[in-house]
């Protein structure tokens, strides 16, 4: 059982309201500069290099991430409530693997 990303969004919001979104995702964020103690060679870099968030298919937040970011990165930002629908969170790893999560929101 893997550790799931944790995401905080309101289930409902008022039209025009600006709300905070909090996210934290479980990832080693391997920098590529750490040495394997046994072999003495560098452990290959493997980080989440991009985070993208869409709100009813419209891009509302994107971040390019670098190896300096700590393991289990925490990212927080604000979105303005416009319409009911889905907020989709997507993280992309160097390996190409993708983590996605969806949260529903009702706007009144």
């Amino acid at each position: 059982m893997a550790k799931k990303p944790r995401i905080k969004t309101p289930a409902t919001a008022k039209q025009g309201e600006v709300f905070q979104v909090k996210t934290i995702v479980s990832h080693k964020m391997e920098t590529g500069r750490r040495k394997d103690k046994k072999t003495g060679t560098n452990i290959p870099r493997n980080i989440l290099n991009r985070m993208e968030v869409t709100y009813n298919d419209r891009s509302v937040f994107a971040a390019h991430m670098e190896p300096g970011i700590s393991a289990n990165p925490y990212v927080s930002f604000y979105i303005k409530a416009t319409e009911s629908g889905e907020i989709v969170f997507k993280w992309t790893e160097d390996s190409g693997a993708v983590i996605t999560e969806t949260r529903k929101i009702t706007v009144k």
């Binding site: 893997a2 550790k3 799931k4 944790r6 905080k8 289990n72």
Partner: peptide, 12 residues
């Protein structure tokens, strides 16, 4: 409790 990364483990 949200920012505390320990809660990734707690939730699991």
């Amino acid at each position: 409790d949200f920012q505390n990364p320990a809660f990734l483990w707690v939730e699991q």
